[in-house]
Simulated scan of single mutants.
Amino acid sequence: MSTAVHVNTHAHAVTHVSTGLIRSLRQIIKESGLDPAKMTNQWPTLENGVEVWLTSRHLRSLVLEIHDPSRRQGDDLVGRFDFTINYGYYPDADGELWLDPDTVYYTVRKAGAFPSLCDYRIVADNEPGRPDVPGWSTTSLRSTAGFTRHEVGTAIGGGSLGAGLSYYTWTGS
């Protein structure tokens, strides 16, 4: 006689990755010299949306756009950080949950400083058909024309879920 045990770690991975994403965004905001109070006030809404869309597998990426409000809209992006979700990160995962805050720390250093007058917003890029979540609305991402995307690598892992981190730097004229 043999016994088989199957543990569904997806729910645990979703909670871990969701929490890790929000905490990592807060780390980027604080270390970039931006005001974390705005994000703190939105924390429950952010957590709820990210968790719902990770569970339904609609979340493609979580994006932090940093913009200069003194510039003309459409020309106001000064920096961006993307956490890109990989639902097949480690398909045979054993349930290991991890977060690498050093990756986030060094990414902020590589991206450089932002003027203190800058503002930010967090945008969830979702697959079509995503469930609606209270407090979230539709929007478009700002143009990254003139910016170069730099891939850093995976910053958060949880079972088969992974979140890769990248940042954008201005290279245009």
Rank of each mutant, 00 (worst) to 15 (best):
V50M: 02
D75L: 10
G20P: 08
Y106H: 09
I122D: 00
A113T: 09
P36Y: 01
G172T: 07
P134Q: 08
A37C: 05
F147L: 13
T84D: 15
A37N: 12
Y105L: 00
W170Y: 15
D102Y: 07
D82L: 02
Q73L: 13
R130Y: 09
A4D: 12
L117P: 00
L64V: 05
L97Q: 08
L25V: 08
H6Q: 14
W98G: 02
R149A: 14
K110G: 08
L62Y: 02
V52K: 12
L97N: 01
G162W: 00
S160P: 09
D132N: 06
V133E: 12
I22K: 00
V50R: 00
L99T: 12
Y89W: 14
L141N: 11
E151L: 10
F83R: 01
Y167M: 02
S116G: 11
L77T: 00
E127I: 06
H10P: 02
D92E: 14
L54R: 07
D132G: 09
G172Y: 08
P115V: 02
T9R: 12
G74E: 02
Y167Q: 01
T138L: 14
A93T: 11
R149C: 14
P101G: 09
G164H: 12
R149Q: 15
E47D: 06
T107E: 09
L62F: 09
Y87C: 05
G172S: 10
K30D: 11
W170H: 13
I66F: 07
V104G: 03
Y120Q: 01
Y89A: 15
R121P: 06
H12N: 12
K110V: 03
E151P: 05
S143A: 12
A155G: 11
F83E: 06
L99V: 12
T107F: 01
I28P: 04
